[in-house]
């Protein structure tokens, strides 16, 4: 049987040292058995490596930054849609999700399907709301407090203790061992991502991650836990191994069941000495290490697209253990004329 052709727009083509998930997502899509993927890249900057990977990406368009507002984004997507007739868009950046969730009804009218968390789910898992989230769904989370002025940290330090994790609303974090360092991180992070700043209890232990996919009705379609083996100075995994910890899988299923999570996600967890897992963060999107999930038999990008297209998708029951990923970098040779095209025309 001939596989249907599905035209998919993918963001996050920045396969750099702090990589976006776009390129691994595309690899998953191109390996899909249920459809034949035609990939359109959506890029913010002209040096995102994915733009130049012509064997993975058929064509790339520049899109405006989320801070330009949804009006400009929809204008640009309308232009792209006229030419490309996309069936699905997979947004892969935290900062752009708000815009895409907001626009999803309008995208649907244009014929573009998405499979994103609801605005409620998106808001509820925000870092500032994590303590309430943990309480509501019975999931352990580290203590945290939200501050608007650096001096406010004094009220909370007795409870949180040093060191403390200083986090931005969307991105960025630092570990402060004293008030001076805390002030430094506060200023640096708030200048870039605004207020408030979140102070989170530093959780000691081993870090674990889970990526997965919920169908929006409480069912787990996919869940693959991973333990980071090597972490870069940017805190990103450079190598990781798929693990079969039932406790982690149960926690993930519970998270999906309780929140009725819709779409892909990554859970960041810490296991303390007593073996308890603490949920540090919920990223409401596919993580950059998703190709490990593909590699062990759970093609999350493929299932994501099928769910977006409204198809019935069977849950993945198992995955192969004993596999790991090792990331590597690769220097491409690019013609200057390609750089010229994306830089001046915004398309390549």
């Amino acid at each position: 049987m001939k596989r249907p052709k599905i035209r998919i727009g993918v963001t996050g083509l920045n396969a750099i040292d702090n990589p976006g998930p776009g390129v691994p997502v595309i690899r998953g899509l191109l390996e899909a058995k249920s459809f034949d993927a035609h990939i359109i890249g959506l890029a913010y900057e002209s040096l995102e490596p994915g733009i130049y990977m012509h064997d993975l990406v058929n064509k790339t368009y520049q899109i405006p930054y989320p801070s330009a507002g949804t009006d400009q984004l929809i204008d640009r997507l309308e232009y792209i849609q006229e030419k490309e007739h996309l069936d699905v868009i997979i947004p892969n950046f935290d900062a752009e999700l708000y815009s895409f969730i907001k626009l999803s009804p309008r995208l649907k009218k244009m014929g573009i399907h998405t499979f994103l968390p609801t605005m409620e789910q998106f808001d509820e898992r925000l870092k500032v709301n994590l303590p309430e989230f943990g309480e509501k769904y019975g999931i352990h989370v580290p203590k945290s407090e939200v501050i608007y002025q650096v001096s406010d940290h004094k009220k909370h330090m007795e409870k949180l203790g040093w060191p403390v994790v200083v986090k931005g609303k969307y991105y960025d974090a630092g570990i402060a061992y004293n008030a001076d360092q805390l002030t430094g991180y506060f200023n640096k992070i708030s200048a870039k991502w605004g207020l408030p700043i979140i102070l989170q209890e530093f959780a000691h232990g081993t870090e674990y991650n889970v990526t997965g996919l919920g169908d929006g009705h409480g069912n787990t379609i996919s869940a693959v836990p991973m333990r980071k083996q090597y972490i870069t100075d940017k805190g990103k995994a450079w190598g990781g191994i798929a693990i079969t910890d039932e406790k982690l899988l149960n926690l993930t299923r519970k998270f999906i069941k309780e929140t009725k999570w819709r779409g892909a996600f990554e859970l960041e967890l810490m296991k303390n000495k007593k073996g308890q897992f603490y949920l540090l963060e919920i990223n409401p999107r596919i993580p950059a290490w998703v190709y490990l999930a593909v590699g062990v038999g759970q093609n999350i990008p493929e299932a994501y697209v099928n769910l977006a297209m409204g198809k019935e998708v069977d849950a993945f029951e198992t995955f192969e253990s004993g596999k790991m990923f090792v990331r590597y970098s690769w220097d491409m040779i690019v013609n200057l004329s390609d750089f010229e095209k994306i830089s001046t025309l915004g398309e390549l």
């Binding site: 900057e45 002209s46 520049q62 400009q72 025309l345």
Partner: peptide
Amino acid sequence: RLDGNMPNKFGMRSD
């Protein structure tokens, strides 16, 4: 001057 970090507005329609 063009550099990789700069959001590029050239060629974009209707900013």
